[in-house]
């Protein structure tokens, strides 16, 4: 069985908001170390990977590995019924087809109980190879959100270039183009500043609609890390106290 008590429902609400438009159904894989989710979007272009550590919960118990197959739309609806600062308890019995959620109000005696149907999901888990990335960029997550939103007004794709100069985001639209250069900030470290580590010049093109989607995770962390190597998927990573959310995005190649 699983019994997990989260100090604030907000984390789960934000996580669901970050993945619900990318993925319809997914397995939350629970084991004694915590809860993991890995899922690809329908077109197999993007993959999201979530980790919630057992230590990030106020109380956590999972006797044996338990996959909780969830429709993310339904889960989002049930979580909307929780206030951000409610204590959130999730429970599932072994082989059960129901996930139960309890929301305990912080400042009153209100206790709300919900149940959600679980489903069997046949999902392929991909082996993601360990990669030594050629470039690693750390920046305020709000800045990344602004860049991808701004450029998505102009075109469908963004070219990301990391060089000695800094990191440049370039969009060539049909009617307009734009580029944004971020230099490493010498006097400011993350979360406010930008740090760039580079072993090799990197130049990759990605679809902006996915990046705009990933940027929703800025509610979970003030900092985002971009890891890039030529001709491999981009890794966009947000770390927070209880775990992380990571996105992988396959690049676009020449015309």
């Amino acid at each position: 069985m699983l019994e997990a008590r989260l100090a604030e429902a907000a984390i789960l609400k934000r996580l669901l908001d970050s993945i619900k438009e990318l993925v319809t159904d997914a397995n939350f894989e629970c084991n004694e170390e915590g809860i993991n989710l890995q899922a690809m979007d329908n077109s197999h272009v993007a993959l999201v990977s979530v980790k919630l550590s057992a230590s990030g919960f106020k109380k956590y118990r999972c006797d044996r590995p338990l996959p909780l197959g969830v429709n993310l739309g339904s889960f989002t609806k049930v979580l909307k019924c929780a206030k951000d600062d409610d204590v959130c308890i999730i429970k599932a019995a072994d082989d059960a087809d129901i996930l139960s959620l309890t929301y305990e109000a912080r400042n009153s005696d209100r206790i709300a109980e919900y149940e959600m149907k679980l489903m069997d999901i046949d999902a392929d888990t991909l082996n993601i190879p360990d990669t030594d990335y050629d470039a690693r960029v750390s920046m305020p997550s709000a800045e990344f959100t602004r860049i991808v939103r701004d450029l998505s007004q102009l075109g469908e794709s963004v070219r990301i270039e990391v060089s000695k100069e800094g990191v440049r985001f370039i969009s060539d639209g049909e009617a307009a183009n734009g580029n944004i250069l971020l230099r490493q900030t010498d006097d400011d470290a993350p979360p406010e500043g930008v740090t760039i580590e580079m072993n090799q010049h990197v130049n990759l093109t990605f679809s902006l609609k996915y990046l705009v989607n990933f940027a929703k995770s800025s509610t979970l962390s003030n900092v985002v890390q971009l890891m890039l190597s030529n001709d491999v998927p981009l890794l966009v990573s947000y770390d927070f106290n209880q775990g992380h959310i990571r996105y992988y995005l396959a690049p676009k190649i020449g015309d």
């Binding site: 690809m40 077109s43 197999h44 272009v45 993007a46 993959l47 392929d124 888990t125 991909l126 082996n127 993601i128 190879p129 075109g155 469908e156 794709s157 060539d172 093109t205 679809s207 491999v232 998927p233 992988y248 396959a250 690049p251 676009k252 190649i253 020449g254 015309d255």
Partner: peptide, 14 residues
């Protein structure tokens, strides 16, 4: 602008 790759090319199915 460019052809979209899929992840299957880069990541292995177990």
């Amino acid at each position: 602008m460019g052809r979209q790759q899929t992840l299957g090319k880069f990541f292995q199915m177990p």
